[in-house]
Computed example of a mutant assay.
Amino acid sequence: GRDVIGLGQTGSGKTGAFALPIIQALLEHRQPFFACIMSPTRELAIQIAEQFEALGSAIGLVCSVLVGGVDRMQQVLSIAKRPHIVVGTPGRLLDHLKDTKGFSLTKVKYLVLDEADKLLNLEFKESLDDILKVIPKERRTYLFSATMTKKVSKLQRACLRNPVKVEVSSKYSTVDTLKQEWYFVPADYKVNSCTS
């Protein structure tokens, strides 16, 4: 029942940590546009929506993804279905708030800022500020990040009330001796399976 600051590395289960309480609350108060989740990238938004749909499949949870690079008319049709959960990037979310008739986040009960450290970059600041102005003040806010930067701390003071801080222990982070490499490979030379 409290606002949350969740800190943990990629792969530590942050999505489940905010999705499960939201789905539990949705069971008790089913309504459209129940939660809004913002992420800095289209790929992350799609992954989050897939997790919500998988975890909420038994209760008929409906999710809408609002991201750039996708036909806006498809997204308008998705919004018209009055989804329980809206997942999006700040720019496209704001576009729909301004231009899509009947779309509003004035009834949102949960706001999640995932990868909050990245959402606070200059490219998202204006859109994020405009969205925060139209979302109700009486809501639960979950702020999730891999790191607690000064910007995240500032956002915490601006939009969270008496939050509880939960942090995944660093002893479970990636080992220092792990070696990762990546290669640029022309598409003609790519194969579907690794041979090494």
Score class of each variant (00 low, 15 high):
residue 1 G to H: 05
residue 1 G to Y: 15
residue 3 D to L: 09
residue 8 G to W: 01
residue 10 T to G: 05
residue 12 S to F: 00
residue 13 G to A: 11
residue 13 G to C: 11
residue 19 A to N: 04
residue 20 L to F: 14
residue 22 I to D: 09
residue 24 Q to L: 12
residue 28 E to Q: 15
residue 28 E to L: 08
residue 30 R to P: 14
residue 32 P to W: 08
residue 33 F to A: 07
residue 36 C to D: 00
residue 38 M to C: 15
residue 38 M to E: 07
residue 39 S to W: 01
residue 40 P to A: 11
residue 43 E to N: 08
residue 52 F to E: 03
residue 55 L to T: 11
residue 55 L to G: 13
residue 55 L to A: 06
residue 56 G to W: 00
residue 57 S to E: 11
residue 58 A to L: 02
residue 58 A to T: 03
residue 65 V to W: 08
residue 70 V to H: 12
residue 70 V to Q: 12
residue 72 R to W: 02
residue 73 M to C: 09
residue 75 Q to F: 03
residue 75 Q to R: 03
residue 77 L to N: 13
residue 80 A to N: 14
residue 81 K to D: 13
residue 81 K to F: 05
residue 81 K to W: 03
residue 84 H to V: 01
residue 86 V to R: 00
residue 87 V to W: 00
residue 88 G to I: 06
residue 92 R to T: 00
residue 97 L to A: 11
residue 98 K to T: 14
residue 99 D to F: 04
residue 101 K to H: 08
residue 101 K to Q: 15
residue 102 G to P: 12
residue 103 F to K: 04
residue 104 S to Q: 03
residue 108 V to N: 05
residue 110 Y to C: 07
residue 111 L to P: 11
residue 114 D to E: 04
residue 115 E to W: 05
residue 116 A to L: 08
residue 118 K to G: 03
residue 121 N to Y: 01
residue 122 L to S: 15
residue 124 F to L: 04
residue 124 F to Y: 10
residue 125 K to C: 04
residue 126 E to N: 12
residue 129 D to T: 12
residue 129 D to V: 15
residue 130 D to M: 12
residue 131 I to K: 13
residue 132 L to H: 02
residue 134 V to N: 00
residue 135 I to V: 09
residue 136 P to N: 10
residue 139 R to N: 03
residue 141 T to Q: 00
residue 141 T to K: 03
residue 143 L to I: 06
residue 145 S to P: 05
residue 153 S to F: 06
residue 161 R to G: 02
residue 163 P to I: 06
residue 167 E to P: 06
residue 168 V to I: 15
residue 169 S to A: 14
residue 170 S to H: 07
residue 170 S to G: 14
residue 171 K to L: 01
residue 171 K to G: 15
residue 172 Y to S: 14
residue 173 S to P: 10
residue 174 T to C: 08
residue 174 T to H: 04
residue 176 D to R: 06
residue 180 Q to L: 11
residue 182 W to R: 05
residue 184 F to T: 11
residue 185 V to W: 05
residue 185 V to G: 06
residue 187 A to D: 14
residue 188 D to F: 01
residue 189 Y to P: 00
residue 189 Y to F: 13
residue 190 K to H: 01
residue 191 V to L: 04
residue 192 N to Q: 13
